[in-house]
Design a protein around this nucleic acid. Sequence first.
RNA 1: GGUCCAUUCGUCUAGUGGUUAGGACGUCAGGUUUUCAUCCUGUUAACAGGGGUUCGAUUCCCCUAUGGACUACCA
Length: 502
Amino acid sequence: MTRVRVRFAPSPTGPLHIGGVRTALYNYFFAKKNNGTFILRIEDTDKARFVEGAEEYIMESLKWCGIIVDEGINEGGNYGPYRQSDRKAIYRQYADMLIDKGDAYFAFDTPEQLETLRSESGKAGNTFIYNAAVREKLNNSVSLQETEWKEKLDKGEPYVIRYKMPHNDDIHFDDIIRGHIVVNTGTLDDKVLFKSDGMPTYHLANIVDDHLMEISHVIRGEEWLPSLPLHIMLYRSFSWDLPLFAHLPLLLKPDGKGKLSKRDGDKMGFPVFPLFWPYGETAKGYREEGYYPDAFINMLALLGWNPGTEQEIFSMDELIEAFSIERVGKSGSRFDPEKAKWFNHQYLQYRYNNQLALEFREFLRARGHHVDIIRLETLIGLVKERVSFVKEIWEQTDFFFKAPETYDQEVIKKRWKENSAALLRELISILEKIDDFSAAKTEPVIKTWIEEKGYNTGEIMNVFRLVVVGASRGPHIFDIICWIGKEETIKRIGKGVSVIGK
RNA sequence: GGUCCAUUCGUCUAGUGGUUAGGACGUCAGGUUUUCAUCCUGUUAACAGGGGUUCGAUUCCCCUAUGGACUACCA
């Protein structure tokens, strides 16, 4: 087998969609699995759609995901430059080669003329196709006399270079995921290869670069499948060896129809991009929402691919080891934000408490709380399993940091009895006598007291929790009072009695 | 409209010419937790439809339906 060289070739037209991240991921898995090279090539041949910051966003996204680029703009390599706008000088000669060979031609039709043609065909119920059937009637170097079109060229009249698609050829080709496909060239059009602004289109630049960069496998999104016949024709015209192709199915909306879009995320409250996008119309990112990169890529990797086993949690190395492109599914995968959360929950459970304490301390700092790291570690241990994100720890522990200001009315109605205030006052006097406030100490003392007095456990424990927490939630009550301490506990009981007891 | 592609529980999917069609997320129920959540156990639920081929099709073929992509001097 030849050397495996794959590329991820995004366009810097905005933030990188998670579908794009998945394409990058599969390319990366494939490269690493086969001791190959992963190349990042920026396809910025369309000046009009270029967006400032997008290129950096792409690189930062890959980095966050743990995808290591072997060759690229920052990494260098022997096949550069890796940005197509920096390769501008390369493409023209290949377009000329095609013209010399008779496989491409100059076309002088203006965009306005083509637009008119298209709308006229549309009105007649047809679709205008620039191909062998109409080529000779249009304004190009096929229909015009040589002296005529050369004169236009000399005068500097704007032109594009189009591929001369044969009018009736069956093109057979294979896709690793789709299998064998046959397309007749009669249904294809004379695609523009070289634009009037001096830049190549995707089709030309892509084929030339893949060849020059010795790409062995083209792994890209399904949206490229329809243009694969053209690409095959191009390889043939150049007499170049074909790489192998694999077209990945798309990511679909969680509900309804169609492919996943930013709107779905906005509507349903989940991110569609790996990182926060700060320019123009801003977009949420998985990183900022609190997802761990390894959970994120694990989730993404299993959307449209699976190893055939029942294992679901994979490290990057395990994914690389298990990956095979043949096991990528044929149909689009609907994105499920719930499952994404589940993955993060799993990864958070695997994390060490001291690590989580560090992460949570950053969160608290931003809110003005400064807590000892050891105490935080204890706190994490109490609530870890109930959360999926570090930021959720706060929702589970706010009452550790501040006494309740309100008390859940439902709980009061259900649990607060005539004698509750008296019982809690008695509880205060018991607690005051305990110096060691560990749960191991307070719990038996209080339980013994309840037992000896013949009280109802539920009646006491529920209101105890109510005055300490303010609601019917949270970890073991004795763990809570241990953490907040004797003084604070007694204070809260006293306050609760006076507020609720009226 | 045309071209190409796809179709197993609500979702991600495994799987085979003869299986009780398996797992995960979700849902629901029970248990644990004297709270809530977690957790555990169980439940739920699928081969798009119609024709073939075959002793037998979810599996192979055809048609239909549905969905998707593409149909630019965008990628």
